[in-house]
Nucleic acid binder design. Structure first.
Lengths: 243, 243
DNA sequence: AAGATGTAAGTAAGTGTTTACTAACTTTTC
DNA sequence: GAAAAGTTAGTAAACACTTACTTACATCTT
């Protein structure tokens, strides 16, 4: 067994904690929160279960610690904000597309995020409202500015941002999570998506539309009242708790 | 207790089976496969655990039975195939968009599909390769035909189909699963997405491109070899099994 | 340099509960 | 009266988490 150090690889607190987090991340991403057993985590980390619980008082605390430390957003966001100054749409959108399609966040993190959203919403809602919403806010602000500039066609910027990201995320979902074959190179996929989107958002020259009805207008009918309030069923019971 | 029938609501086999499936579906969708306990299912169905196991020999069999019976695809697909004959792009794409945005499949089924893809891939891969792939095949064939007709710009039809569906699915993910607010009516969302996509896929008049590099071409660079083969780690061990 | 000592790192062996699943029995219905 | 529908009361294993203990090692003292 002992290959690195002679007999007992005793580690300082911080290092051991990190080792546990690494092991737990892999297992939680693979099998979810309730699908992962604390014994497996301890085994993969090469320690006893008792030690695990000395570092993280409950399984949930461990899961929360993992969620708190990972986020793909900041790195992406700083780059986007830098590119936003140049007002080069193609460059910016292509950067985002290439990043996402080339597995950022990686499959493990995607699975972790999905699992947490499904299994532990109160933990992941924080994550989403902090990181994801912030990204969409910055991104849609850029789009709004470019619409005002006259570089992009007018429509709701947030919807446009979500639409663009959706094309990318869906590709990752289909390939990483649902295991459908992807018969193209990442570069080509990114380029096609950017092309469809930017072409779709391009201002039309005052031409006659080639289709029957006039869909040259962009904002779509805005007279609908947004009264969407689906009753969430949201089970509020919880079994065990800790201080 | 007995409110429907006087004392014992004894049901014929098929009906009881259906009642169990209904209860199990709700719980599996809410808490996943390993998060749901057979005792809870029996309780919600109003029967003993023993009876549950008389109808479904294992918990996994029950889960598989649920997956086998639901699919949002056939209904959507027949409608799409009917509309495809008319070659009215706006009508067809708008139909798909409205359907998805207006919660078909509903939140419960979306959660169920995601849970099964994450927790029981061998069960859901069947689902995806049968239903989802079939939908994309039909849908992308329509797009391919419209490209040949000259009605849509040339690009890979499968990528285009996935891009379009991605905009819609992402909206459902953000609102249903990740609980981000959606500040628009379903109708406006659907319309905006359709507009972006169809405008993006519209053939450009032989004009000069307004951006620096020439992106008037559609298929994107096709010289990349598709050598994507990420090593899946795919834990092959399984604990309990049944004949 | 050798020992004493405090403390952090680590573990073996549980605890009570929960879990998927079963055996053996009772009740209803045709 | 017999088959089908249903239950009670289990079982062995698995589960998150604890208790009570041992071991390694840096630092201080002599």
């Amino acid at each position: 067994m002992g290959s690195l150090t002679s007999t007992h690889p005793r580690l300082p607190r911080a290092q051991r904690k990190a080792a546990i987090l690494t092991a737990a991340t892999r297992l939680f991403a693979a099998k979810g929160f309730s699908g992962t057993k604390t014994r497996e985590i301890a085994e993969l980390a090469g320690i006893s279960e008792a030690l695990l619980f000395k570092h993280f008082p409950t399984k949930k605390d461990l899961f929360a610690a993992i969620l708190a430390q990972y986020s793909p957003v900041p790195r992406l966001l700083t780059e986007v904000q830098a590119l936003a100054h140049e007002k080069n749409d193609e460059q910016l959108f292509r950067y985002i597309a290439t990043t996402i399609v080339s597995k950022v966040p990686d499959t493990q993190l995607m699975r972790l995020i999905l699992f947490s959203a499904l299994e532990e919403p109160e933990l992941s809602d924080l994550f989403f409202h902090q990181h994801v919403s912030r990204f969409y806010k910055v991104f849609s602000q850029y789009i709004a500015r470019r619409i005002k500039d006259g570089a992009l066609a007018s429509c709701d910027p947030l919807l446009a941002a979500r639409a663009f990201m959706g094309m990318l995320i869906n590709h990752r979902l289909l390939s990483d999570i649902f295991h459908l074959p992807v018969p193209h190179s990442p570069e080509m996929i990114a380029e096609t998506i950017v092309r469809i989107f930017l072409h779709g958002m391009r201002v039309t020259a005052p031409n006659s539309a080639s289709t029957a009805s006039g869909i040259t207008r962009l904002g779509a009918s805005e007279s609908y009242s947004s009264k969407a309030s689906p009753s969430r069923h949201h089970s509020p019971r919880r079994k065990r708790q800790r201080s």
